[in-house]
């Protein structure tokens, strides 16, 4: 298992400030500055202040949950179980994989074009962990990096994250077929 620390550091540097330092400071400062609103009628300011304080409370509270050890997110685990077969250099994949599979998915689903180089199942076949068989999980190829970059990973609400997965019922039927 190989950790690509340099890439993750680079990725981290590109993230907006808010992700690195948590959002708490800005929100608190905003709440304090509401003092300026004192010139408005009291009824309005009271209400605005109440809303602002509630908002600040909501914004601040989840910050410690998102930040990992020492306020920092843990590094992604980027392990490639089946290396050397990728359809493009790692640099390009890292930057453009979503565009690639997004365009492919639309062509495949809507126009019925099959056999394109980019495919989610293709990704999964090479990148699924040998231990869990999946690209998800704490050390999963997709999940760990997406969690680190705080980018929502929506594919696996519908797509199967395990390589060559057979549902229990189907596996049993195939098994019976092989050994009567």
């Amino acid at each position: 298992m190989k950790l690509l620390r340099d890439q993750s550091a680079a990725l981290r540097a590109r993230l907006p400030l808010a992700y690195r330092d948590g959002m708490s400071r800005g929100a608190l400062r905003g709440a304090l500055h509401l003092g300026l609103l004192a010139t408005l009628p009291r009824r309005v300011t009271d209400f605005v202040r109440l809303v602002a304080i509630l908002f600040a409370a909501v914004t601040v509270s989840p910050a410690p949950t998102f930040a990992g050890e020492g306020g920092r997110t843990s590094k992604p685990v980027v392990s490639i179980e089946n290396p050397g077969k990728c359809i493009a250099p790692a640099e390009e994949m890292r930057r453009n994989h979503m565009e690639m599979i997004k365009h492919q998915r639309d062509r495949t689903l809507r126009q019925g074009i099959r056999g394109e180089p980019a495919s989610l199942n293709g990704c999964i076949d090479c990148h699924a962990s040998k231990k869990t068989g999946s690209v998800l999980g704490q050390d999963g190829f997709c999940q760990s990096c997406h969690e680190y970059a705080a980018v929502k990973l929506d594919c696996f609400e519908c797509h199967q994250p395990k390589s060559k997965f057979k549902p229990a019922a189907q596996a049993a039927a195939t098994e019976m077929g092989r050994k009567p």
């Binding site: 199942n121 999964i124 519908c158 199967q160 997965f165 549902p167 189907q170």
Partner: peptide, 8 residues
């Protein structure tokens, strides 16, 4: 899900 039929 099966790999061939995404659904969710």
């Amino acid at each position: 899900q099966t790999p061939g039929t995404p659904r969710g």
